[in-house]
Design a binder for these strands. Sequence first.
DNA 1: TTAAACGGTGGAGTATAGTCCACTGTCAAG
DNA 2: CTTGACAGTGGACTATACTCCACCGTTTAA
Lengths: 131, 131
Amino acid sequence: MLIGIIAHESGFSRDTIRYYEKIGLLRLPKRARRENNYKEYSPAILSRLRAIKELKNIGYTLAEIQQVIMSYETGGLDCLAGKAQVLEKVRLIDQQITQLLAIKQQLLEAVVDCPNHCKITAILDNTLIGI
Amino acid sequence: MLIGIIAHESGFSRDTIRYYEKIGLLRLPKRARRENNYKEYSPAILSRLRAIKELKNIGYTLAEIQQVIMSYETGGLDCLAGKAQVLEKVRLIDQQITQLLAIKQQLLEAVVDCPNHCKITAILDNTLIGI
DNA sequence: TTAAACGGTGGAGTATAGTCCACTGTCAAG
DNA sequence: CTTGACAGTGGACTATACTCCACCGTTTAA
């Protein structure tokens, strides 16, 4: 497959894919060229890009993704350290949620406590119950 | 308070605090100088920095933080539009929490579900097969 | 008194993650 | 046979959010 297809299928731009190649996140076999010098991307590369996309969505940096994929390829993820890594991530997420809840609480208090009770307060009281 | 104290209390470096001043995220009164030209930071500034830290932790960019604080300070909270804005913010926070919970779920499943594998292995197994 | 520690300013440099551009080569349709 | 879409390369540029440095003045403790 040529880069246009890969870009379309993966959802990354050509430039981004080339950027990933440049930083070594994607490695093409040396022979992965057609006679006209166009790069030939394997389905494996596409899979990898999809994995990268998912990992990015979870909030991993490219460096972390590189690590994770490397660990995976060397079988490193079947170990305790791998699990510890995920659990750490979960811990961070919990922290974030806690903070979000705190901020939300503050915001709601700011809305409800507001001295000038306009009509909206009633609406808010109804819509925000249980939050 | 001088910048050293503020830095220590807020957890930001001096450079970062000065950077925030430069981009206008922090605004000192013109008269907030001692006779020796040292800047005098008020407790309000410290509060603001703590707010910034919290907002940063939950993933806001400095630009967003600037917006949020501005809305807050212009008394936006006392009027209808202000309340709508807060509500919108609350909605976004809820969205974020939902997303975080989903991610956490995925991560936990990745760890717990696969008997021998951990973490991302689930994602990777699905996307990287054949690499 | 003098040296460390702190403060101020301006400007350069860093890291991350791309994005854009110029210039060139290739291919397929009309 | 030309035109447009696509491919390749190298390098410049962007935004975000700092971080560091040089060079200067001030304060404080030995």
